[in-house]
Design a protein around this nucleic acid. Structure first.
Lengths: 233, 233
DNA sequence: GTCTATAGCCAGATAGAC
DNA sequence: GTCTATCTGGCTATAGAC
């Protein structure tokens, strides 16, 4: 009995190695450019052996997604186990975590257009269950944040959820890193700012406007070409 | 001489038909899933004929991108020809236009990971020239908007530019439309709001906070589970 | 330039010995 | 279950007649 258990454990380890490799390759090249040959070369096994564990390339991607969804659910649990925080804080912390995962090269990126992959994922119970659970748990925070006035109540909760998911694979992260001008933490901070507070400058309170009006004109801002600057809508 | 000109004109029309079809197919399925056979079937010509016009599949994608970049440059010209507006207004109007193009199914979507396509695009002068020109013109508005205080000056202009480009192929648009709860214009308005003003509720001015403190407690907001609601960070 | 027919290649998936 | 060797299909790209 112990022998069988040991064998099963070895197989489990091998499967984990496969999924980890798939995860990395998916993050690096995406689903379409990742080939099964690359996976088996990376793991060091034969292609036929891999197909004993996973029925298709789509199944490989699903396993990688299950893995990352489990990591996300674990992150939620960690946040909830910590000191109590506002729901908006939790949403920001989760967005920060997803961006860290992406910058670490551990976020698998799947094309949203590949229909064979989409149908395979929709039929994958383990994937769908975790996706639903994650959406539900995030949805709770969204509802709470809208109720306490920290998140715009006019936005449909779905939109907030989708936007958070989209930040997890935002190509802007990689582009900004390519420029080499900012650290990873700076990039994440800036994108968190634009995501939650927007790119536009915040509306200035009335008293601040009055104070600025009394201040010397030169101190306010440097002049720009007047022909293109007019009253904001 | 007129005969040659006429023939050239016919060829031009056929090339336009090809590029239009490629544009639509790229928007629908993306580069990797679009096949040259689909293109020729859609246009109604033989594959060998297509390859007399375009050297490769990558060249087809580049032509479609040139087409959409030209449309974007034309949109910029239209905006500048209109009544004078604040630079932030122009940025918002451009973002709105890109989302309209995407929802109309006319925005070609290229994978950012396909290296053969990337190198082909980087080597394509017509594409690169237009991309540079478009970036320069948008960059001017960004600089002006930051100078007049309507756009956060702390953000690198690149980040703003990349973010605007990213909104042109934001998958959130398609997801929201799938839910069927909102009109296209509503979807665009909401995404413009989150893009420029963020998902978080705006900070409340001090006097409004004081006024709310004097009002009856029940009028402020409906109560939520107190265990998860605490002071925002 | 346009067509039919096909070359050449590569990736996903499998057969069969061990 | 793991391997080597192979099948199969679909895709880009081209040859060659008209």
């Amino acid at each position: 009995m112990a022998k069988i258990s040991f064998r099963a454990q070895v197989l489990q380890v091998r499967e984990d190695a496969i999924v980890a490799s798939v995860n990395r390759l998916l993050a690096e090249k995406g689903f379409d450019l990742m080939t099964v040959d690359q996976v088996v070369a990376d793991v060091g096994i034969a292609k036929a052996s891999l197909y004993k564990h996973f029925a298709s390339k789509e199944d490989l991607a699903a396993a990688a997604m299950v893995r990352v969804l489990d990591r996300a659910l674990a992150q939620l649990a960690v946040q909830r186990a910590g000191p109590p925080q506002a729901p908006l804080y939790h949403l920001k912390a989760l967005a920060r975590w997803t961006m860290q995962v992406q910058l670490a090269g551990e976020m698998p990126s799947l094309p949203s257009q590949n229909s064979t992959l989409r149908t395979a994922l929709l039929a994958h119970k383990g994937y769908m269950d975790r996706l639903m659970q994650l959406s539900d748990e995030i949805g709770e925070w969204i509802t709470l944040a809208q109720a306490d006035g920290s998140l715009r109540a006019a936005l449909p909760p779905e939109l907030v959820l989708y936007t958070l998911f989209a930040r997890a694979c935002d190509p802007v992260l990689a582009l900004l890193r390519l420029s080499g001008q900012h650290s990873d933490e700076q990039i994440i901070d800036m994108l968190l700012l634009t995501c939650f507070d927007g790119m536009a400058a915040p509306a200035v309170p009335a008293e601040a406007v009055a104070a600025a009006a009394k201040a010397p004109r030169a101190a306010r801002s440097k002049p720009v070409q007047p022909s293109l600057v007019s009253v904001a809508p």
